[in-house]
Simulated scan of single mutants.
Amino acid sequence: MNMKSVTRSRPGRLIAAFALAVTIVTPVVVATSASAATTLTVAQALATQDGRSATVTGYVIGQPTASTTVITSNYTADTAIAIADTATETSTSRMLYVQITTAWRTTFGLLSNPSLRGKQVTATGTLTAYFSHGGLKNPTAMSLGGTAPSPTSSPTPGPTSTSGPYDSTYYASAVGKSGTALRSSLHAIIKVQTTLSYDQVWEALKDTDQDPANANNVILLYTGRSQSKTSNGSGVDDWNREHVWAKSHGDFGTANGPGTDVHHLRPEDVSVNSLRGNKDFDAGGSAVSEAPGCYTDADSFEPRNAVKGDVARMIMYMAIRYEGDDAWPNLEMNDSVSNGTAPYLGRISMLLAWNKLDPPDAFEQRRNQRIYERWQGNRNPFVDHPEWATAIWG
């Protein structure tokens, strides 16, 4: 099917090409350091709490005393520090709690060294929970200073990569495959999940889509607006639960299963959600006044540039997760924008392009991790491996 023509002028709307190369960062090493493969930012370390050994660089914020409490003066012990990607960070959700064992306390304990606050440190250790919070334990090396990658750089390999942190565990049966074999393996992996109720989705979205700059808010998918978590509902300016794979495409509604799968449910402004309706995704149309950067016409919706890849990977997840071998329809992507209530959603050619041009960012990666750890126990493989989209659909 030929793609529809777009005759209107759209200056400034062409997507800028994203760099697909993954930056290799040399870790900071001291004489007593154990070997660590990469140097991570705090955000990256918080997203990979899987027991690996890693080197992390950050700024000392204070002393953690509880899962959500970090004191910044009147320190009580030399046993732990909280570090962040910026020296002015105030949200504990963006801090890594570092255990300070006996060997390092005289130099890195805040009770003994209160002037350490605000300084950059590099630590090598095990990425695992500490104080029931994202942490680094049993440090094998610590030093002042260090050069970390940008906090906005991707800890997950880009579209040309072939390795990732879950390859030897969660994705072990899929790694090295392509085409139908990869598709079948991924389906078997991700269909093992906890199913939420539609009411539970409200609470899940308040966690998964939390504004990194304001823990009281969520980020709305299409508008990009930061809005209070408590303003969810059906009012004109409230936010509600947007089914990115429109629930009428396969007629699965809001019943437990695809209708409540948080991997494709996102907070969105009520009126913008209604405007998108059950339209397929494609480029073209008129500007959406309440959602800058979005466009729509009679049969399709185009999201803003910053979430084009997010939308594509959510649709790809649904096409792999729901294969018709359980109580739910077999969902498939196609190249149409007139799918009606059939279990199809397009346009696949545009979604594949968006996946390449807008690789996963820190927000999308954190969201994937939260769903895996706290809500459903399964992952979106296309967030972890965007290149698998091409390996399956070409």
Rank of each mutant, 00 (worst) to 15 (best):
H243M: 08
A213I: 09
W202S: 05
E203M: 01
N355G: 11
T26C: 02
D50E: 09
R321G: 01
V201C: 04
Y317M: 05
F363W: 10
T79W: 05
E290Y: 14
V22F: 11
G109M: 04
A255P: 02
A148E: 06
A16K: 15
W239P: 01
R94S: 11
R304S: 13
T194N: 15
C294S: 15
P267V: 08
A47S: 11
N240A: 07
D261K: 04
N330L: 10
G377C: 11
M3K: 14
D384W: 10
S132K: 07
D299W: 13
F281R: 01
L182C: 07
A80F: 04
M314L: 07
N380F: 11
P258Y: 06
N355S: 12
A54F: 08
T86K: 13
N273S: 10
A148K: 09
P386G: 09
V272E: 01
Y97R: 01
T390E: 10
G259V: 06
M333S: 04
F301T: 01
L20R: 10
N74F: 07
S226N: 07
F363N: 10
R313W: 14
D282V: 02
G346F: 03
P139H: 05
P292F: 11
S231P: 00
T147V: 15
S153V: 06
I81Q: 00
K356G: 00
I315L: 15
F108L: 10
T128Y: 15
I348N: 00
T390Y: 12
L144G: 14
H243V: 08
A148S: 15
I348P: 00
D384A: 13
T90W: 01
P386T: 10
M314Y: 06
K177T: 09
T180C: 02
A255S: 15
A66Q: 10
T162Y: 11
L20H: 13
S185I: 05
S271C: 01
M316T: 06
E268D: 12
S112P: 01
M314H: 04
V22Y: 09
Y75E: 00
T147L: 12
N368F: 05
N2A: 08
S91H: 10
S163R: 13
T128N: 15
R379H: 09
V42S: 00
D310V: 11
I61C: 03
L136T: 02
V6Y: 14
S231D: 12
A391H: 11
T223A: 02
K4L: 13
Q63S: 08
S185T: 05
M1C: 04
P292K: 03
A19P: 09
